[in-house]
Amino acid sequence: MQDQATITLTINGLTYTRAVDARLLLSDFLRHELGLTGTHVGCEHGVCGACTILMDGRSARSCLTLAIQADGATIETVEGLGRMSDLGRVQQAFREHHGLQCGFCTPGFLMTITDMLRHHPLETDDAIREALSGNICRCTGYQHIVDAVRELARERGPLT
């Protein structure tokens, strides 16, 4: 009944080819078809940012993207940022500054921040808060997340 399409995409360095329903959301594809459950879904209407992934290097909302739109794309998800025994730098900063509590919003924040650090100067707290304002966290009040990003931005230095 549903239109199907075959897509090929690269996720965290691995290439997948799958037949999918045309209407399947990218978030559902990642979570339920591939078992990459690190990407979370908090609203399915594009507001909360929990589902944020990187698509061809820029942050995108996987709940507002169809899987077929990702055909040919390079996707990065939280699973690609580091491992429990070898956390990536953004993950480490979150841990040191206690930037997470329940952890549900966290993968989305980590992906957004990865993008922001690559592309935005983030020189002031206001700029950092602005950069984070597309992601909702209900637990932390954002302060420890801002602390983590401030440290990451300083460490990175000015964008060239």
Partner: peptide, 15 residues
């Protein structure tokens, strides 16, 4: 530093 963080930070949590 929290014990629960490594799993939650790497998408290894289980909701």
């Amino acid at each position: 530093k929290r014990t629960e963080d490594p799993r939650l930070l790497t998408g290894s949590g289980r909701y």
